[in-house]
């Protein structure tokens, strides 16, 4: 029983990171109907910057704040610089339908290459700000550590901030209205081109948090967040891709599920399981657990 609780808590910890990536993908999807394949790439940049700051100043908090700010900035720049040009030229040609996917993939490639050029492809060790040794109760050492606790609290904090912004502020109302129906939002005076950029800014910030939470106590390379993107995507699809709450729940469910698989069946089954979950959700309940029906064909 104690072990089950342990595995569950580890799952919540990793799941809250997936949830943040999933949140980032959903924010972008809601604002511009694009799945940003470069989301993890943007997070790689901010994570490397955080690594650099931690190495030079030793302050994890400063690294965190800087990473989030730069993450938001990159998101905004990508939307206003690249995506806007893309939509301006968009037509209904064969490539136009897949152009956003290709453009964000291209961006991912550029980011990785630049990161590799600056920091090389060799793995960097990202020291954890807190102890990664498990808590000790009596004479048993749990796998659950201070780092896991920090991850859960940080992710929860970010999610609470998001939910306050979205549910309680004018900006949040404008963002939601623009996501559900851009035309009515514009007719009500909402500057939708601005809410789009803000959606990307928020997504960039959320992705930056995910990257910085995943990397401590692990090796950081230009490719080390690829898996985070895929799990974030699976979580977003479980949640329906439209719903912020769904994104978070999807991430937690996936994290806990995969944690049990890792512990009882082995690491090598994690990826196949995630893929099967993705395909099953898409085939059986394409609108996700929280999605609106008929929203999938965009």
């Amino acid at each position: 029983m104690q072990q089950v609780i342990n595995v569950f808590l580890i799952g919540i910890s990793i799941g809250s990171i997936y949830a943040l990536m999933s949140l980032a993908l959903v924010l972008v999807w809601r604002s511009t109907r694009v799945v940003n394949f470069a989301q993890a790439g943007q997070a790689i940049v901010t994570t490397y910057i955080a690594w650099e700051v931690v190495n030079r100043s030793g302050s994890f908090l400063m690294a965190f704040i800087l990473a989030v700010a730069i993450g938001g900035l990159i998101g905004g720049l990508v939307e206003s610089g690249m995506m806007r040009t893309l939509f301006k030229h968009a037509s209904d040609g064969p490539v136009a339908a897949v152009a956003p996917v290709i453009a964000t993939l291209g961006l991912l490639g550029v980011i990785r290459a630049l990161v590799g050029l600056i920091w090389t492809n060799e793995g960097k060790r990202f020291e954890s700000p807190v102890s990664t040794a498990g808590f000790v109760i009596g004479d048993t050492t749990l796998p659950f550590s201070r780092l896991n606790l920090l991850i859960i609290f940080t992710a929860a904090f970010v999610m609470i901030v998001f939910s306050i912004v979205f549910q309680r502020t004018n900006l949040g109302l404008a963002l939601r209205a623009a996501a559900y129906n851009p035309e009515i939002a514009r007719l009500s005076g909402v500057k939708v081109s601005m809410t789009r950029t803000i959606g990307w800014v928020f997504a960039g910030a959320a992705g930056a948090v995910a990257g910085i939470l995943l990397s401590p106590n692990d090796s950081l390379t230009p490719y080390s967040l690829d898996v985070l993107f895929v799990f974030g995507f699976v979580a977003a699809v479980i949640g329906g891709l439209e719903s912020l709450v769904g994104a978070v729940v999807g991430g937690l469910v996936l994290g806990v599920g995969l944690s049990f698989i890792t512990f009882y069946l082995g690491t090598s089954l994690v990826f196949p399981t995630a893929f099967i979950v993705l395909v099953v959700v898409l085939l059986v309940r394409p609108s996700g657990l929280f999605g609106v029906k008929g929203a999938r064909s965009a």
Partner: peptide
């Protein structure tokens, strides 16, 4: 032309944002 996912109050508030 209302946004069904928002509450009545939110729909109204939207016009005055």
């Amino acid at each position: 032309s209302v946004i069904p996912e928002l509450t009545v109050k939110e729909n109204l508030a939207l016009g005055g944002l």
